[in-house]
Design a protein around this nucleic acid. Structure first.
Length: 257
DNA sequence: ATGGTAGCGCTGCTA
């Protein structure tokens, strides 16, 4: 089974690229983030024509997450219980069962700056994500959490010279660590232990062409998936050419028999 | 190079 994640930064602008990518990458499951669409505007027919069922959790101009699947899509749940009722209700999480794997598409808040209230919101959101994932399942069950975490897990996930403190702080790395301690694996690093490679590049200052980016788009999987994963790729080809997203897709291949 | 680009939508926010 091929499972992928891609922050498309407006599905309206990127639909042609996503269709093209589906046709050559042929994932069984694709988690998308930042669709920036209302549910009524989601292009279900374009995906149905390629054999994909879809679920979308959108809010319009910002955020928006989706899951495409050609191995079934059941028990769809939008969002998660929030511990802080005053936090904004944003479309950042969608969960469904696809081909026997419980899959979440996540778009973690950016954080903006360490002194911004939005950073505290990011930490609360991550704490709730951990509770949502770890209380609903056992780490021996097949579980994937895929998306734009806005966290660079280690120093080799940050290009030299880039300051990204909201994405590298001990607090956000600790929040990610909570999912890893519970039993999830960052499958890219499992297969590429030291390679400095990125999944996001700032549009500004030509950072993509300078090779200056961050690895913040992650595929986390429990042992039944991670232990059977044979291949993990960040598809930088999809970041080239006209009108790219600022993120590249990440995919894994797992033999789930 | 503390600037710069992109998307949404029409003013400034978000990233």
């Amino acid at each position: 089974m091929r499972i992928a994640t891609w922050n498309v930064n407006s599905l309206n602008v990127r639909l042609g690229r996503v269709e093209e990518w589906l046709d050559y990458a042929r994932p069984d499951v694709l988690c998308m983030q930042e669709t920036k669409l209302a549910d009524a505007a989601f292009p279900y027919l374009a995906f149905e024509a390629r054999g994909y069922e879809a679920a979308h959790h959108g809010q319009g101009r910002w955020n928006g997450v989706a899951i495409l699947s050609r191995v079934g899509i059941d028990d769809v749940v939008a969002g998660m219980p929030r511990s802080t009722p005053t936090d904004p209700d944003e479309a950042r999480l969608l969960t469904a069962t696809c081909g026997g794997v419980r899959v979440s598409s996540v778009y973690v808040p950016n954080g903006r700056s360490l002194t911004d209230d939005h950073y505290q919101y990011k930490l609360r959101w991550l704490a709730d994500l951990r509770s949502f994932v770890t209380t609903a399942a056992d780490p021996t069950a097949p579980r994937v959490v895929a998306g734009d975490f806005n966290i660079a897990p280690a120093d080799n996930d940050v290009a030299p010279g880039i300051r990204a403190d909201t994405h590298t702080s001990p607090a956000v790395r600790g929040a990610l660590g909570g999912l890893l301690e519970w039993g999830m694996v960052d499958v890219f690093r499992q297969h590429h232990p030291v390679e400095p490679i990125y999944s996001w590049w700032d549009y500004r200052a030509g950072d993509f062409h300078k090779g200056r980016g961050l690895r913040i788009d992650l595929l986390l999987a429990t042992a039944p998936v991670a232990g059977r994963t044979s291949f993990v790729l960040i598809d930088r080809q999809a970041r080239k050419g006209k009108l790219p997203s600022d993120h590249a897709p990440v995919l894994l291949d797992a033999d789930l028999g």
